[in-house]
Each structure stands twice: as structure tokens, then as C-alpha cells.
Design a protein around this nucleic acid. Sequence first.
DNA 1: GCCGTTTTCGGCCCGACTGTTTTCAGTCG
Length: 572
Amino acid sequence: MIERVSLPRNDELAGQFELLADLMEIEGADSFRISAYRQAAAQIRETSVPVARLALEGKAKELSGIGKTIEAKIVEVVNDGEIHALTKRKEAVPAELASFLRLPGVGPKTVRRMWLDLGITTVRALQAAAEAGALRELDGVGAKLEERILEALAKPQATEGPRRTLLGSALPRLNETLATLRAHPAAIAVDAAGSARRGRETVRDLDVIASATDADALIDAFCSLPWVVSVEAKGHTKATVVSQDGLKVDLRVVPHASYGNLLQHFTGSKEHNVALREAAVRRGLSVSEYGVTDVESGDVHAFATEDEVYRFLGYSWIAPELRENLGELEAARAGELPDLVVEADLRGDLHTHTTWSDGKDTLEAMVAKAMARGYDYYAICDHSQRLREGGFEGQAAAIDALDATVPIRLLRGVEANIRADGSVDVPDEILAQLDWVVASLHHGFDKSPTERLLAAMENPYVDCIGHPTGRKIGKRAPADVDIERLVEKALETGTFLEINSQPDRLDLSDVHARAAREAGLKLVIDSDGHSIGALDYVALGVAQARRAWLTKGDVVNTHTWKQIEALRKRRP
DNA sequence: GCCGTTTTCGGCCCGACTGTTTTCAGTCG
């Protein structure tokens, strides 16, 4: 056996189980085993500590969806690099077939026929067959699906899975759609659902639900919204459309009496709903988007609000951000759900920029916006190396002058770089004169990021670590930071960690933030705003904090500035 | 494969829409 120097990361483990599930599904294996592997993969992705290490300690079994067999398979990855069953399966089923599943309208049964009836095993061969009109010869495939496949293959990365859009990019379209549909005469109620309502950092599509006096009229109006470029599906209760930028939007309409059931169903997540329904089935109840049916008597209980749905099933209402089947159902049954932080709890922003460095708006404009948001305090943290003429002294004078004229407390801050040796690039004499110090990694993400962050936290003036993993969603993977050690050191030194609210950062992530909270660490929710509009991004950070089960008390900047001064590390 | 507020064995969520069909399988969420 080969000893691996480093443990496989959770996304690598999850990817292997997902590929194994895909190949088994194409092979036609037992569907419950397949979903067990998918369930395990999802659990591994949602776990903040290395599951490989848990498996070595025999503790991975404690995670829901992971039993003795899957734990043993994880150990196989540690020892040999790959799940043995996956290695074997790849010999039987060409692995490239799994990518066919990403094509629209193509599922395991169709892939199996492409493979066995036509001998297609590569994307290239699939494209050639489609172009030659050979696919339509298959059972269950017609000219229309063949055309759809060709169209999809013409796009780059067609077989690399659905493109996910940043929540921050998708929200404007969602809000615009809600406003238009709410104004329609046939509309009774219109709401967002799906992953956007749950506040996930990225969304694959947008979900809108409604009740209406005339469902067809509302669906017609939805399908003819100005930004709609194609209608993928349209019936009497639902429709799917695609926007210019390729974003799919679903609308679903039900009678108002079951509006609560629909909102609950369509908000998901799938995992949450499956667990909810399985628990209901054990008590003789069948849950669907139309109501809760008592199987024995046949009585259907429809509810106009979500709150009634959850209460009828024996739970307290569960905030959408928590609905991932990660313990929220058990907590709701026991009445032990946390009272989650809300945006209005924030009293200030502790990481912002101005035109003194790379910001787009002036100090005065940013502060005016901060006051409009109702903040009590506001920290200006321009980049240390990029301060324009006048440097720290010049900016300090400008901040102090403005501070004297406004009711809000202005804080002199900095976002310092963490160097290769873990030191920060601003001398202590200057840091000592500042009210608030953020330290961040900006380059060399692959050069001992954990050690550098730990060293920076030892600096007595560093109050908070900015965007701890340095990830850019969809562009740059998170640096290989050991979050457990980071949290441990943060608690030991009195340093805070940030939830950076930039739409493509959201760093710490929900999973990491939850682990930090469970360890007892308080987090700062910052905008890292470089323009006045960007100060509103904290809504995204708050959504991640809620997904991480954070209460008001868990968030540093829900406290007064005086309280924060008492909470943070002692200065020399 | 996993899992347990009647179960350690025998279950494992529910419904809509499309395309290719003459009553439904496959896909999707």
C-alpha cells in the first residue's frame, strides 16, 4: 500500500462517489445503492473537517448517510487513491459516459442505449452520431431530442455540468420578475423559492411560485416577459423559461388554499424535503406540494402558510436558509432552532474601501451611504500598499475631519497584506494608531497559507482576518487553509474571522462559518465594499451567516463599538 | 448502500411535463 502524504480533500472524495453513482446508474444497478452514494457525497461536501481523517479514526460513520461500507471506501481512497469499486467500474463502463448525463433531456437510460446500441463511448463520437442523424434511431430518442443534444454540444463545457450563477448576479432578475408578476391582475401571491430563497452562494436556476385567480393568464404573462428568449416547458400549473444570459426561471402556480404547501415544497432543498417526507410516511402521512394526505383516511390537509405546514407535521417553522437536512429537522422538532441573525441587526461595517486606494467612490460618498443604512460605526480599510498621496497621515486627517461633522463613528482602519513569512506589511507604529486592522492574503495562496494566517493572528494589532481562504467562486479555488487550526488560533489570540460579503467571495463559506460558530468563535460580517452600491452586499453575507446557524450574538458587528473594543484582543 | 418515536429487516418522496407514444417511460426538480 502506498502511503499518501496528504489526505484527499472532501471535494475529491465526493467527486469519486458521484462518479461511481453515475457509472452504476448507467450500468443499471440498484437505485437505492446509487442514491446512498449520492447522499454520502453530498454529506461529505457539507462537512467542514476532512472526512478522510474522520474515516481513518473510524468516526466518519457518525455522519448521516455514511455507514461502515462507505467509511471503508473512503479509507481506500486514502490508501490507494481511488475507491476500489470505482476502479473496477471504470473497466466495465467507459467513464466519459458519465458526462453525457449533463446534457439536457439525457438520463441514464438514454446513455445506456447510446453506449450499448450504438457503441458510443466519447463525447466526440456522440457529436458525430448526432450530426449523422443516427441518434434518432434509438428507442425513446426522436429528432427533437437529437437536435437539443447537438445544440447543447455546440456550447463549450456542455458536458461539464450545469453552470451555476452567483446569487448576487441572479437576484436582480429574480426581484424584477417578482415585481412584474405581483403587479399582474391575475396574481394573488407571488414569492421566490428554491436555492435563491435559501440563500445559497450560487444558483442553477430561479424558482418563483404563485397563486392566481387565472393560472393560465399568469403563466402566459410569465412566458412573455421581455427578457425571455425561449420557453422550455409550459403547462397549466408550471412553466420554465430561459433568459438572455442563459438563466432558467421556473414558475409554478397552485390554488391559494395550498400556497403554504407549495412554498414549502418548492423552497427545498431536495434533501430537506426527502427527509421531511420520509419522516411523515412513517407516521402515515404523505406530503406533496398540494397538501398533507392522511394515507388511512384519505383526508388532505392544505395550508395557506408554511408555518401551518411545519406545525401540522410537528415542527416549528424552519428558516429557508437552514433547510439542507443538516440537523434542522431534529432541532425544529425539539424546538431548539437558533434565533438567526438578520440584516437589521448589523450596527456597522468593518471592512470597506474608498478612492484613497482602489475604491470607486469617495470617502464622503461611502460614509453618506453608511449613514443611510443606519450604521452607528464604519471602518475605512483601504489597502496598505495602494494608498494615494498623503498615505496614512493624509487619510487619517481626512477621516477625522469628516468624523467631526457626522453622527456616525468613523474608524481609521487598514486592510494589510500578509507577507510570505506571515508578517503584515504595515509597521506596528502605524497599526497602533489605527482603530481597526484587517489582515488578508492577496497573493501566494499556495505558499503555506495556513502558517501565514496563524502567524498574522499572533500580531497584537490584527483584529480580523479578511476573506480567509481567498477563494473566488467559479474562478479560484479556496487556498488549502486548515480551518480548524485557524479557528483554534482565533479563539486563542482573540482575533476574529470575517464573512466577506462580496458575491464571488462569501468567505468564510457557510460550511466553515458553521464550524467556527460551533467552536465558539464570533465572526464579522463585512461588505468589503469598493463602491456605495456594494455596501448592500452584506445581505449576501448575512444569508451565509444564517445558513451557518449564526445568531445575533455570534456576529461581532451586531454589538456596539464600545462592546467590540472590550471583546477584541488586548493591545500592548 | 443506509437506517429505526411501531422496524436490525424491509423499506427507501412525490408530482409535472415532454417526447415518442397509442398508454407511458424518462427526465427533472
